[in-house]
Each structure stands twice: as structure tokens, then as C-alpha cells.
């Protein structure tokens, strides 16, 4: 299957099951958000990108951010995300492909990509595109579904994308690894002095 057929299939699958998304994923996603937000701080000047935002379950966890942008391939999921975002200030939605993000370089100070990479035909390309739109000092959180990626392979993927893993959560409760990565070595990072990866 070529990469576009795979993407069209993913799009159709989420469009068709959009109504079931929250019932299926809300609990699991919440665990990932908590694991991620233990590792970084969202502040009043944060510009947040949520890649694969689905129905916008993350939005209520990052309300203090100056701006939150949610992107997803599925238009049907975004319609639900729009309803969720109505009560929140400063959330913007765009339908886009994570490999072709419609943003300028260095636009975001925090980027989240939960449960995205396993759906992508070339996860390395996706990570490079995420890296492009993240600021030099951005915090980037990516999750890797355990059944799709062996831990060593997932670490290697991050390294090949030029991302430095700062901390990795691998609790039994989580169906995926939740990894905080930086574009550059944490030595250069203004907010963090963690180096435990």
C-alpha cells in the first residue's frame, strides 16, 4: 500500500468512528496527558501544537497556554474538537497531514503528538516535520504505541530524527511510551536541567 492510500485509509477510519472516539480513547489519552504534563510546564506564553488532536481531549489540560493549535487528518474529529474548544479561549483548529504541517518554521514552544506515529507511513519524516515547526528550545512530547514499536527501535527513531530524549515514561498502565524530547541537547535548554533519559 502506498503512503497516500495508507493516509486516506486512516482518514476514513477516523471519520467513520469519530462518534466513538471519546468512549474508546478518553481514559487512555488522559493517562498519557498526565504522564506528559508531569514532565513539562505550560505557561502563559506557551504556543502549543497538538498534532493528531482528535476531539481535542488535551485542550482542557493546557488552558494556560497563550495559544493552542490542534491539527488532525479527520474532518469529522475536528468538528467535535470545535465543539469542545468553544468554551476555551484561544484554541485554533486546522485539518492537516502531520507530514505536511501548514506552519512556519519554529512556530511552537510545545508540541504534542500522542498516538500519531503508528498511523504514519514514515514516522521519521513525521518527526522531522514536527521538529521543523518547533522552536529551538521547544519541549516536544511524542508517544509510541508499545505494540507498534520496540523500545530500542523507538529510541533509535527519535535519535535519527535528531531529537534528544530527556525523559521517558514506560509505566505498565500506559499502552505507549511517553517521551519528552528536545531539538537540541538539554544543555542548551532554558527551562530544564533534567538529564535522565
Amino acid at each position: 500500500m502506498n503512503k497516500w492510500s495508507q493516509k486516506r485509509r486512516t482518514m476514513r477510519r477516523y471519520d467513520l468512528t469519530a462518534q466513538l472516539y471519546d468512549a474508546r480513547y478518553a481514559e487512555e489519552q488522559t493517562l498519557k496527558y498526565r504522564a506528559a504534563l508531569e514532565q513539562l510546564r505550560i505557561t502563559g506564553d506557551s504556543r502549543v501544537l497538538d498534532v493528531g488532536c482528535g476531539t481535542g481531549l488535551l485542550f482542557s489540560y493546557v488552558t494556560e497556554a497563550a495559544m493552542v493549535v490542534g491539527v488532525d487528518l479527520s474532518g469529522k474529529l475536528l468538528i467535535q474538537a470545535k465543539e469542545r474548544a468553544r468554551s476555551l479561549r484561544n484554541v485554533h483548529l486546522v485539518q492537516a497531514d502531520a507530514d505536511y504541517l501548514p506552519f512556519r518554521d519554529d512556530s511552537f514552544s510545545a508540541v504534542f503528538a500522542f498516538t500519531v506515529l503508528q498511523n504514519m507511513p514514515a514516522p521519521l519524516e513525521t518527526l522531522r516535520e514536527i521538529k521543523r515547526v518547533a522552536e529551538f528550545t521547544a519541549s516536544i512530547v511524542v508517544s509510541g504505541l508499545k505494540k507498534a514499536f520496540a523500545l530500542h527501535a523507538f529510541r533509535e527513531l527519535l535519535e535519527n530524527a535528531g531529537l534528544t530524549a530527556i525523559s521517558l515514561k514506560d509505566d505498565d498502565m500506559l499502552k505507549c511510551y511517553v517521551v519528552l524530547v528536545f531539538k537540541r541537547s538539554c544543555h542548551y535548554h532554558k527551562n530544564f536541567a533534567i538529564n535522565q533519559a
Binding site: W4, I79, L93
Partner: peptide
């Protein structure tokens, strides 16, 4: 060109 429909900009690659 990319349409904005129902408040949402649709900025997909040609193939999608």
C-alpha cells in the same frame, strides 16, 4: 488554495 469550511481551514496535500 485551501478552503475554510465550518470555521476550519482545510490545509491538506493534493493527494488527500
Amino acid at each position: 488554495w485551501y478552503p475554510i469550511r465550518d470555521e476550519i481551514p482545510e490545509m491538506l496535500p493534493d493527494e488527500l
